[in-house]
Write a protein that binds this DNA or RNA. Structure first.
Lengths: 242, 242
DNA sequence: CGCCTACTTGAGTCGAGTCAAGAACCGTGG
DNA sequence: CCACGGTTCTTGACTCGACTCAAGTAGGCG
């Protein structure tokens, strides 16, 4: 049978990569492909948990809104990221598309039977959850203990490797400059800052020669050592627990 | 057989409560009881993941240290909390005892065979991980988007319900005043503030009549409505996903 | 009783937020 | 092709909240 999985950007993602071409047909049979345009929401925080998703292409922001209107972005998601697992009755975050998005959608109810048939799926889903914990803890540290420019330095290195990985699922291409899908406001809402502060920090890193801003979405890291020192960034260990 | 589980504070915790008295013997057979005194570490962030723990009594802070000496506390743990699951080769947080601690320790290697024998254990462990994600997201929101006094107001309500739950595993006793195990420094390191700011916020809430500080560990909530409004605190939904 | 640590309070500084204006960019339509 | 309006980004001036530094108080324990 001919399924689009093998040309999918997420085929080598943590979720799909554990399955053979034959096995993944099982998953694909139950999946529905969702397409969302920029700015639209894939899901809302107060929605009951009925579907789960694996991003095929595009980018998302997982965010939460306060009653006073303040927004906090919890994560940025790329191709290969798995979304929708929650511990309560509702997703506790909303997922907003930063670029036109494609995602595989499964009914949460189907997940249980898929777990039965493919036990490694369950293991993998939970492994992904553990990784989420690590990632959010990193972010927690950054929000609580870093200054504005340090946050931005950390963020740039973080996003760069993050996107390199997402792209790496298909082809490992190495370049010093990269394009971000999120606006300055998004970055501010992710790091607990204001737009103005984010903008100033970008300008500062730019004038100090650590980065170069080609257009506002495209950043080149000129002095990685300095940026790493400033952001105290340690790239994630690829190792898995034994 | 006579095992201490039935008099354990964690017997009704998310982990242990799913097992019958008979089943829990299986778990207890493989467990080793660890005792740690105040200020000592149960585990260090750079340690390889070989053991997992379920807290029986006492309290812990899960913390991470930066190279510059800054500390960020990721969570406070009480009786019934499960610790030690990681996605990488090392725990990425250290666990420091805030009070004399007792915990059940299992070898990580034994966990897999226990999962085999008791599938609901695995489900429950992963359910716990999902809850951790929710909890840290709440904290992220607070760190990123609240002011000092709002953080403290939120923290007090949070810790109060948190401890009421932990106590509730044994006996549901309802009181307006509660005793915290952590110092002002710990609170500061949890909320991304300094000790002085924490202290000032306590004084301010005290003088405004929202709380009463009996001794520095014992807090009484005098005006719950005002405190809730200030901290924008919404108590967690007990509901579970279907 | 005295020491040590934890906490509180005050004074001054500085970083990030706020408010406001202007520049760059984007899509749309003439 | 350019004019236009809206949005996003940048920059400046000012304010204020939280940090820093410093002193002093309160408990806990030998």
């Amino acid at each position: 049978m001919n399924i689009p999985c093998n040309s999918c950007q997420a085929r080598k993602s943590p979720l799909c990569s554990v399955f053979t071409d034959l096995e993944i047909e099982d998953l694909f049979q139950l999946a529905h492909i969702r397409r969302i345009k920029t700015g639209a929401y894939l899901l809302h925080e107060e929605d009951p948990v009925r579907q789960v998703y694996n991003v095929s292409s595009g980018a998302l922001a997982l965010e939460r809104l306060a009653s006073n209107g303040a927004k906090q972005i919890m994560a940025f998601c790329y191709a290969g990221d798995f979304i929708g697992i929650a511990s309560g009755p509702s997703y506790s975050v909303s997922a907003r598309a930063l670029k036109p998005l494609t995602a595989c959608q499964w009914q949460e109810a189907d997940l249980q039977s898929l777990y039965k048939k493919h036990p490694k799926l369950e293991t993998r889903v939970h492994d992904i959850t553990s990784r989420v914990v690590e990632a959010i803890m990193d972010q927690l540290f950054v929000l609580g203990r870093k200054k504005a420019t340090e946050k931005i330095a950390w963020f740039l290195l973080f996003i760069e490797t993050r996107q390199a990985n997402a792209r790496g699922y298909t082809s490992a291409h190495k370049s010093r400059s990269f394009k971000m899908p999120m606006t300055r406001v998004d970055i501010a809402d992710y790091l607990g800052l204001t737009v103005e502060t984010v903008s100033r920090a970008f300008s500062q890193l730019n004038s100090k020669g650590m980065i170069e801003i080609t257009d506002k979405w495209t950043i080149t890291i000129k002095d990685r050592a300095a940026l790493t020192a400033l952001g105290d960034y340690t790239s994630p260990v690829p190792g898995r627990k034994g």
